Simulated scan of single mutants.
Amino acid sequence: MKIGIAMDSFKGSVTSLAAGLAVERGIKRVLPKAQIELCQVSDGGEGSLEAIYGHCGGTWQRLKTVNLMFEPVEVDYLISLIQGEKTAVIESARIIGLHFIQPSESTVDQSSSYGLGQVIKDAAGKGVKRVIVTLGGSGTTDGGLGLLQSLGAELFDEQKKLIGLTNPLRMIASLDIEPALEFCRQSGIQLEIANDVTNVYGGEAGAAFVFGPQKGASASQCQWLNEQLLKVAAYGIETYDIDLQKVSGSGAAGGLGGAFCLLGAKMISGFELMSEVLNLAERLKGTSAIYTGEGSLDGQSAAGKVPAGIAEIGNRYGIPVIALAGRRDQSLGQLEGQLTAAFSIQLEPCSLAEALTKEKTEQGLETVASQSIKLLQASFASVDS
């Protein structure tokens, strides 16, 4: 029997690989001779680089740049041969992530995506032509203007003076992104953006109003930033006939999605991109059952998360899919009909802090995997008989 395992990371507890190995141990308790197809996976957020490295290999690159507050940082990104093409994979959160700050009105005014552009430039300097950027976990709300500045764009205030580097969105009156576009043309890079957010650039469902508060923005700041985002959106229409208000995902990562869109980047769902790069469907289609899961399984998990993507693969090939989660809602919405079954891995009453420990998480995954595989084994035996 061949069993597929494609677990997302359990945030704050275990990586995708550690979760998968715990499930494998549980399965091997019952089926010691089972063949296991263990896939490190991600939906394009945390753990993406490790998942790609685990499947494709490559070389880690270390670079000195600045984080979202212009503090010096050393960051890693990956250069790998993906589908026959030399590719750089960059997690924006490693450079401009929310974890670098205590969100406040002050950090909103000062933060910028500038450092991310420096990493892209470094990759281009190494002869890379394809650059994949994951957008999850950003701490900025600058409309991606810092990124554009870093790549050469010129931004101007109401007095037509060049704007400084700290959150240029606050002061933007006009801009010229041609130098940034010229950099992309001259370097020959093709940008691809892994993103599962559907919000547009500005407006009530845009970057400022939806994501600004979690990054420290006050109501008045959100209002002002939104007005500025709409100025940039108008520029996109007037200059390039690109309407960021109609581009799904342009509001991702504080508007980074929109900036990449203006640069001609290909926008793709995080899981779809990762599934393609990791060749998940081909690796899983010959299995008798697939295990997946994440830290918190709920109705939102159907929107581009790993369990939903794995369930789609399973349903495509008629393979049962079992989800294991640190917690699961009573109702999983649309996902309820896509999964064969979904279980919480909690074995006894405990505090949240205890439940999040690596030891407890791995113990729960191993135990529930072993019990659920017994049911599948009995089911397969019944069919065979």
Score class of each variant (00 low, 15 high):
G251P: 02
Q334W: 13
K2S: 11
S80Y: 11
F100I: 12
I322M: 07
I193L: 04
A19W: 11
N199D: 08
A51R: 03
A259E: 04
N315A: 08
E238Q: 15
G137P: 01
I36C: 03
K160A: 09
S113W: 00
A18V: 08
S92M: 14
Y317L: 05
D176K: 05
G314E: 07
G84L: 07
G318I: 08
S104R: 04
R170G: 03
I322D: 01
I189M: 03
K374W: 03
I36N: 01
V232K: 12
L356K: 07
G202V: 02
L145I: 04
K86N: 07
S138W: 00
G125T: 08
A173E: 03
G139Q: 05
E282P: 10
L375D: 00
I95Q: 00
L135R: 01
Y235H: 06
I101E: 10
L339W: 09
S106M: 15
E74T: 11
S16A: 10
G202Q: 09
G4F: 00
R29N: 10
G97F: 03
C261T: 15
S275P: 06
L375M: 12
G293P: 03
Q118P: 02
Q377D: 07
A34G: 01
L147I: 04
E178G: 12
Q149D: 02
T107Q: 01
A205C: 14
K33Q: 13
E105T: 08
Q186S: 15
G264K: 02
L181C: 10
L116N: 09
Q102D: 14
D109N: 12
L229F: 11
K246L: 07
V368W: 05
F260M: 09
S16I: 06
Q221D: 00
V108K: 06
L332A: 04
G125Q: 07
N226L: 04
L63M: 10
K126F: 06
L81A: 06
G127F: 07
L230P: 06
S16N: 13
L280A: 02
F70A: 08
I373E: 03
S138V: 01
R94V: 12
Q223H: 15
Q35R: 14
A289T: 14
S351F: 00
M1C: 01
E192N: 08
A22T: 10
I373W: 03
L17D: 09
L225K: 05
E192M: 15
E71H: 12
L21T: 15
Q186F: 13
L98M: 10
I79L: 05
S296A: 10
L375I: 11
L165P: 04
E158T: 14
I132Q: 01
I322T: 09
D142W: 02
P213C: 08
E348R: 15
L244W: 06
S16D: 08
T367D: 07
S220C: 09
Q338E: 12
G364N: 02
H99I: 14
S379L: 13
Q83S: 13
L375E: 01
A323M: 07
G97Y: 05
E238I: 09
S370H: 03
S385H: 10
G264P: 02
V133E: 06
A219H: 13
M171A: 14
A289K: 05
Y235D: 01
C184L: 15
I132G: 02
R283A: 09
M69E: 08
K33D: 11
S372T: 13
D76W: 14
L324Q: 03
H55P: 08
H55C: 08
S111K: 11
